[in-house]
């Protein structure tokens, strides 16, 4: 099995998980004991990560299928114990699902960039479509500076290229 450290050494996976669970969450993953199942309290004690952070991290990972638990009920007290283990081996599949979900946003943005002409206020750094700029007589509605044509070809081309690469990676080119 690919180790957690190995996965976290991949800059993209690291950045993806960091956005999901933050620095402290990453620390929990790095110190997570290999193998076995552990309660949140055990994990907090073993890793030195704050209990609330441990819980929050585990639930966040669970929502993305990257952690699982087994629930045990104490027959005498009726108390429930949750024993956790990681499923980071699924990270590529989970990431793929998310990328598939957001691909339509990227397509929509590219279509918008391609079908519009843009104007920009150099003072306010605000970009307007041709229609909006024309409505303002090509003057910035905030500072009345003349709007200048904004060439979006470079960013549109970069986005187009990346969308192609994403589709190729997803096998849907």
């Amino acid at each position: 099995m690919v180790s957690v450290t190995e996965l976290l050494d991949d800059p993209a996976i690291n950045a993806y998980i960091l956005r999901m669970i933050g620095e402290e969450g990453i620390e929990l993953l790095r110190r997570f004991p290999e193998g076995g199942e552990h309660s949140d309290e055990e994990l907090a004690e073993m890793t030195g990560v704050n209990l609330n952070t441990v819980r929050h991290t585990l639930y966040t990972l669970y929502e993305r299928r990257l952690a699982e638990y087994r629930r045990l009920k104490n027959t005498e007290t009726g108390w429930l114990t949750y024993l956790w283990h990681l499923r980071l081996d699924r990270v590529h599949d989970v990431l793929e699902e998310q990328v598939r979900d957001v691909l339509e946003h990227l397509d929509a943005r590219l279509a918008y960039e391609e079908k519009n002409d843009f104007y920009m206020c150099r003072n306010c750094s605000v970009i307007y479509t041709f229609t909006d700029a024309a409505n303002w007589n090509f003057e910035c509605p905030n500072c009345e500076e003349m709007l200048e044509h904004f060439d979006n070809e470079l960013i549109a081309a970069a986005l187009r290229k990346r969308i192609d690469r994403i589709k190729e990676s997803l096998g849907s080119a």
Partner: peptide, 24 residues
């Protein structure tokens, strides 16, 4: 999937995990 496709200049594609109202 090649995870690199979500990175640009070390930044993750902001749509990933975004919970804001979406107007791409």
């Amino acid at each position: 999937i090649d995870p690199c496709i979500i990175l640009a200049g070390g930044e993750v594609l902001p749509c990933i995990g975004c919970d804001q109202e979406c107007t791409p």
